[in-house]
């Protein structure tokens, strides 16, 4: 019995790591740029599928991941520079515009890759299982867990301990003053946007390896990411991590106990939390 429980907990933790990677990109863009990018799920899907194609063609999953991140970051740049500039400052119009983009990207993915289910190949050194506390657990999932922690640490260091991070934070508080001190704030924001999108692409490749990719995968990951950000509070890296852990663990426990109602198990705590903290655990008023 304990073996099964540990297995579920590990499943929850690794799913949480994936959720964190995807949701951190979302919350980064949401919190710092005040843009709700509802195309995030579609970028995840496109990234994953592109990563799959590159990995299959080249035989290297790492190359697939890099290609996915680059492609999705590029798409993000086109979105930010090409479309978002028309609706700058109008929050709701921005959100709805990204929603339109999500529909277009999904449809494009359907045209290119069709409606099949794809699994991104796992590199040979991460295949197989290892023994942890008496259970055999897939190595790749442990790798995902580690990657989640690395992404968290890297983002935290970037935002809090680098010049770029200081610029981003300053740009959020007072973009005009940052401009006045001779810095191209639009370029900083564009970079942040691309970074957030690249995280969605990375998530797509990883999610594609252990959750598989199919036409509605984008909507599912989007609702999980939204739950994470709503629970954690917008723009908070720590909030995203806590939210991801909560949603990931609840989801894997819910799947075992109430297989058909797993969605409801994440909904319950979210509802409870919102009743007391409408802006999430770590959310601040704008």
């Amino acid at each position: 019995m304990t073996g099964i429980n540990l297995f579920q907990i590990l499943n929850g933790l690794t799913f949480a790591a994936l959720l964190f990677i995807v949701a951190s990109g979302f919350t980064l863009i949401f919190g710092l740029l005040r843009i709700v990018n509802l195309a995030h799920g579609a970028l995840y899907l496109i990234g994953g599928l592109a990563g799959y194609s590159v990995a299959e063609a080249s035989g290297s999953a790492a190359l697939g991941a890099v290609a996915a991140m680059a492609l999705v970051a590029l798409l993000g740049a086109v979105l930010e520079r090409g479309l978002m500039r028309f609706v700058r400052g109008a929050e709701l119009r921005q959100v709805l515009l990204t929603l339109g983009v999500a529909f277009i990207l999904d449809d494009i993915a359907l045209v290119i890759w069709g409606g099949d289910t794809f699994t991104v190949p796992v590199p040979a050194m991460l295949q197989g299982a290892m023994q942890i506390g008496g259970v055999f657990y897939p190595k790749f999932r442990i790798f995902v867990l580690a990657l989640g922690v690395i992404v968290f640490a890297a983002l935290w260091l970037l935002l809090n301990h680098t010049r770029l991070g200081a610029l981003i934070r300053a740009g959020v508080d007072d973009p005009e003053m940052v401009e006045a001190s001779g810095i191209n704030i639009r370029r900083v924001f564009l970079g942040t946007f691309m970074l957030g999108c690249a995280l969605a692409g990375l998530g797509g490749v990883i999610g594609g390896a252990f959750l598989t990719l199919y036409p509605t995968a984008d909507a599912e990951i989007l609702v999980f990411s939204l739950a994470v950000v709503i629970i954690g509070g917008r723009g908070s890296l720590v909030g995203a991590a806590v939210g991801a852990l909560l949603v990931g663990l609840l989801n894997s426990i819910g799947r075992v106990m109430f297989p058909e109602l797993a969605y409801f198990v994440i909904f319950g705590p979210m509802a409870l939390l919102l009743a007391f903290r409408p802006l999430g655990l770590f959310g601040k008023t704008a």
Partner: peptide, 28 residues
């Protein structure tokens, strides 16, 4: 659940709630 929020947050909440209904219909 959603009434205390406004603007984009309200939109996201109703979006998430609606998608939970969708997930339920799909899985149940």
């Amino acid at each position: 659940l959603a009434i205390r929020t406004s603007g984009v947050y309200f939109l996201l909440l109703t979006l998430a709630l609606g998608m939970i209904v969708w997930g339920l219909c799909l899985r149940w």
